[in-house]
Design a protein around this nucleic acid. Structure first.
Length: 576
DNA sequence: GCCGTTTTCGGCCCGACTGTTTTCAGTCG
């Protein structure tokens, strides 16, 4: 079985971890990690890159990695990888995931004590054997035990949307403290990643102590893991780790930039700084020439300006070419929430929604929208109250009547979220689909088809002349369910060729398609629809999360269908 | 393993913290 780009990236990461345990050259290890990051953010078709021989020309990919990637794509396995794997007990890689235990310590545990997995490590700690090892001690042993105990609860990431309320409360509280000059969230949260590992908060102040004391005494804190002058860390109930860093105001914007990351972005920035005779760190820019004056920054814009760059929005800082674009003045003018004039793909009490048609209409009107499309489930999704033809037609009439009543200014569009059946056909006959304003087509079953079958299924649905928008294209549920196997490059090509839109499902647990695919899709001419997939009137506001992801995918207003006024949308839908 | 206004070898981003140490290695972000 062949592997997709993400699967190959996982193998490269694992190779890197094994090389680490073997004490290999750290730069070689980084090359494998870089290769994995390249594959994860790949926007071109991998098969095309391999076939055309252009893979080895990609940044960070040389002949050796190109060969290995091609082999993994073709065979789904790699001799080199399997031999490496066989050289170590499998459990050692798990030990590596314990905080505070890296490759050197793991290797020492293995070679000195014969420990090869986590249960063995736990037992050795409890017997006090680990503390006797050179380089280890009582505290390390206790920390390892804690790490093992907390692995399940603390190891996992958190949905961006679940972290946001905490961020707001925390920043509000911090900004009210008299010692605080500035305070911002940084890290993956600020970069609008769909999930957040831990939360970084940066404060500018000359008086850190009272701020730290306030911070570690917040309600809802399960554990204080560090309490220092410049950094404190807590574990809040629910498992999220929050790190607070306090820096002098003059360093604030350098620190904010540094801790916003990403790592790849920072590496590229430091390389650029070096080429300009400057050394960059979280503390600022230090000239190589000791006589020169270090650049100052009274805003993050000035940090970039010091390196001859336009300000890069945080969500673009993933090392995906944003620095070249900033230098060339070619950064995109990103879509914003205020640009949206309506949304498609929303449910009501007719299927599995919890709000009525009128409640949905009222909520859309309160948001100032011009239109709202109702797309309840189709008949095959019986588990979700999918509508038989008769009930669907009654809903179409009810929507017509509501529009005619003049009760709301917002125009309600009638539609359906039509199941794409296993063979790629749609769940209603064409004469019924033709009566709808908006046909969203989605997969709700048959997740286990192989990649070729699943791809053909989606492509066939996109070729249907009455389909408008492909819903949640990969079916993933963040932190819960993996996407199904599908060749997205081909799906995107099919959408482009047939003039269809692909949805950016804004439901916080979906955010599907993923941000990494939108640049490619938009370049191919595919319009994005930022849809809430609302099952409750309040869920319409989820479009905010969709906008965050669209921005992260470099999308501009012009590339998003529901920024267009009603008249243009109706024309695009083919409804006069 | 990658890469080249220091080009085919010899570099490769930066700093803080922790615990174990007597000056620093390992880990992390």
């Amino acid at each position: 079985m062949s592997l997709d780009a993400e699967g190959i990236a996982e193998v490269l990461d694992e190779i890197a971890r094994i090389l680490e345990l073997n004490g290999e050259n750290p730069f070689k290890i980084r090359a494998y990690h870089n290769g994995a990051r390249f594959l994860e953010s790949l926007t071109d078709d991998l098969d095309e890159l391999i076939a055309s021989g252009r893979l080895a020309e990609q940044p960070g990919i040389g002949e050796a990695l190109a060969d290995k990637i091609a082999a993994l794509r073709r065979d789904g396995r790699l001799d080199f990888h399997e031999k490496l794997r066989a050289s170590l007990p499998a459990g050692l890689l798990d030990i590596l995931t314990i905080p505070g235990v890296g490759p050197k310590k793991t290797r020492a545990l293995w070679k000195e004590l014969g420990i090869t997995d986590i249960p063995g490590l736990q037992a050795a700690c409890q017997e006090g054997r680990v503390a006797t090892l050179k380089g280890f001690g009582e505290k390390t042993q206790a920390r390892i035990l804690d790490g093992i105990r907390n692995r399940e609860a603390y190891g996992k990431r958190h949905l961006w949307a679940a972290v946001e309320p905490l961020v707001e409360t925390l920043l509000k509280g911090l900004r009210q403290l008299p010692q605080v000059r500035m305070a911002e969230a940084a890290g993956s949260f600020r970069r609008n990643r769909e999930t957040v590992g831990d939360l970084d908060v940066i404060v500018g102040s000359d008086e850190p102590r009272p701020i730290m004391d306030w911070f570690v005494a917040r309600p809802g804190i399960a554990e204080v893991t560090a309490h220092g002058e410049t950094k404190s860390s807590v574990r809040v109930e629910g498992g999220l780790q929050v790190d607070l860093r306090v820096v002098p105001p003059a360093q604030f914007f350098f620190a904010l930039h540094h801790f916003t990351g990403s790592k790849d972005h920072n590496v590229a920035m430091r390389q650029r700084a070096l080429s300009m005779g400057l050394s960059m760190s979280e503390w600022g820019l230090a000239p190589r020439d000791p006589g020169a004056k270090p650049p100052q920054a009274a805003s993050e814009r000035e940090v970039f300006a010091a390196l001859g760059l336009a300000w890069v929005p945080p969500e673009l800082r993933e090392g995906h070419g944003e620095i070249d674009a900033a230098e060339a003045g070619a950064l995109p003018d990103l879509v914003s929430l205020a640009d949206l004039r309506g949304a498609f793909h929303n449910h009501t009490t007719e299927s599995d929604g919890k709000s009525t048609l009128e409640q949905m209409a009222a909520a859309a009107e309160a948001l100032g929208w011009e239109y709202l499309s109702i797309n309840d489930h189709s008949r095959t999704s019986a588990y979700a109250g999918g509508l038989e033809v008769e009930r669907l037609l009654r809903q179409v009439d009810a929507i017509k009547a509501l529009n005619a009543s003049g009760k709301f200014k917002v125009r309600i569009l009638s539609g359906s979220e039509v199941d794409i059946l296993r063979d790629g056909s749609l769940d209603y006959p064409d004469d019924i689909l033709a009566k709808l304003d908006v046909v969203v087509v989605s997969v709700h079953a048959g997740f286990t088809l192989d990649e070729d079958e699943q791809t053909a299924r989606l492509v066939r649905a996109l070729e249907h002349p009455l389909a408008h928008i492909l819903g949640h294209a990969t079916g993933r549920l963040l932190l819960q369910r993996e996407p199904y196997k599908v060749n997205l490059a081909k799906v995107i090509d099919a959408a482009a060729a047939n003039g269809k839109s692909i949805e950016l499902n804004a439901y916080p647990r979906r955010l599907d398609l993923d941000w990494t695919h939108w640049r490619r899709a938009a370049e191919k001419g595919v319009l994005c629809s930022i849809n809430p997939d609302a099952h409750l009137a309040d869920h319409l506001a989820y479009v905010r999360h969709g906008v965050n992801v669209a921005r992260k995918g470099w999308l501009t207003k012009g590339q998003v269908l529901n920024t267009r006024p009603l008249r243009e949308v109706l024309r695009w839908l083919g409804r006069r």
